[in-house]
């Protein structure tokens, strides 16, 4: 279903959910949960947004049934650790590539996806200061390196 423009802010989290459907269903579930909660705050009034959010909720409930016995889904503290570990793993991969001077689409995507997953961590509560800094740095780095490569410059 097409994403209504009012919900544009969650489109990348939903794409990350789709990309992880098979690879890591727990990541996919929490990306959708974050998108659902954020979408409800963005706009649950206009009919097309409400329709979209109802579909997303249907998806979440069926994922919940499929994954219900997974501790990462049934216990928030386990889910929190799962998402945080995954986000930091992506961040470290990208950071290592950056420090080694290896700039490519994959590492840009890893920086950006790690920042999205740090957004998702907020479903479990306030982000730590460290994760807020990580998210800011990862988003800035992804944008900076992307622009450098687009302009044919070497990132510093």
């Amino acid at each position: 279903m097409a994403l209504p423009p009012q919900l544009r802010a969650i489109q990348h989290h939903l794409r990350t959910a789709q990309e992880h459907e098979k690879r890591d269903p727990v990541v996919s579930y929490y990306c959708r949960l974050y998108a659902m909660q954020t979408g409800m705050k963005l706009d649950s009034k206009t009919p097309e947004c409400r329709k979209f959010l109802v579909k997303l909720m249907d998806q979440l409930e069926s994922m919940k049934k499929e994954l219900g016995d997974n501790d990462s889904i049934s216990q928030e503290v386990v889910g929190n650790a799962h998402i945080e570990n995954y986000a930091l793993k992506m961040f470290l991969y990208a950071d290592n590539e950056d420090r080694a001077g290896r700039f490519h689409k994959n590492m840009i995507k890893s920086f950006y996806s790690s920042s999205l997953l740090l957004d998702v961590l907020s479903v479990f509560g306030e982000l730590s200061e460290e994760n807020i800094q990580h998210r800011k740095y990862a988003r800035w780095k992804a944008t900076y390196i992307h622009n450098c490569l687009k302009n044919g410059e070497t990132p510093q």
């Binding site: 949960l33 409800m40 959010l53 409930e61 919940k64 928030e76």
Partner: peptide
């Protein structure tokens, strides 16, 4: 129609909030 539309909208919003709360409570 305006008021009916509004009450349908808010009923659906409430239902979504309840489903979300239920989903999270079961975690």
């Amino acid at each position: 129609t305006g008021s009916v539309g509004t009450s349908v909208a808010s009923a659906e919003q409430d239902e979504l909030s309840q489903r979300l709360a239920k989903l999270r409570d079961q975690m």
